[in-house]
Amino acid sequence: MAIVAGESSAGAVQERRPPEGGRRDRLRLRRGDGPRRVPWVWILPGLVVAVAIQFYPVLSGSYYAFTSWSGIGPSHWVGLKNFSAIFSNSQALGPLVHTLELGFAFVIIANVLGLALAVGLGNALRTRNFLRALFFAPVVLTPLATSYIWAYIFQYTGPLNNVLSALGLGSLQQAWLGSPTWALWTILVVLVWQNAGLSMVIYLAGLQAIPSELDEAAAVDGASAAYRFRRVTLPMLMPAILINLTLTMIYALRVFDQILALTNGGPFGASDTLATAVWKQTFVNDNYGYGAALALLLTVMVLLIAAAQWGLVGWFNRRASA
């Protein structure tokens, strides 16, 4: 039986599952194995290194969000002024909207495409191993290298426009990375191309965990393929969906080196996201305090959306098992 990764954060998912023997045993074991229990001291190395390298530096760095620090020299406490500046400044709204647009579009497309590829490349295909490697290849490419390839493709004199004019669609030619309308979506294309393979592999593993007898039984009962997918495959796939949603969402909201390399957030901010705005404010514009406040805001957003995702998956699961 397939069970969830990341279910840690979505206990509800499992709560509603029909109790199984294994689970009862586990509970009993946890309560009652006395002196032979796993010693707490085992968590020390992991906890210490995470606190020393991540939690402590980030927390002490977060202090700057409440200062007017330029990024160098002494800093002055300003309380919540940076946060109120963010919310009162309509310019900060652009990156926020772009982050959400890019984030949602990426999560949906990467997952739908990843799932479609995984289903399409099921066990029956003779070329499946080759094709899987092919779709996975962009995942291992350095993000910067990916950006260079695509920057070349999207150049005004580049391959994409060449193809368009060869197809007689010359009127569609444009400066993709320099277009206020298209810049953000060219970035989306690059992100999807690079990451759909990762989603695919996680879905593949999830699909392989589904016992084929289940699907066959439903087929024998005369259920349509669409019905089987919705009522059998999808609910069984929830764990993989949850991992994928979490990983793609965190990735999409925080990605910035590809954006900097492709458009630098331009033209005129048309593809600036919160992550690129944080980079620019902290390291380019001498507004470290403001940038730090933006970064904290982004963190809150990531946590809220993650919680919403986990809640949604839990709700879906309960409905499916009802």
């Binding site: 999207f154 150049q155 005004y156 004199t157 444009q174 400066a175 320099g178 277009s179 033209p267």
Partner: peptide, 12 residues
């Protein structure tokens, strides 16, 4: 300026 100038980088 060249066509597509708004998206051009140094290499262009």
């Amino acid at each position: 300026f060249e066509p597509g100038a708004s998206g051009a980088g140094f290499d262009q």
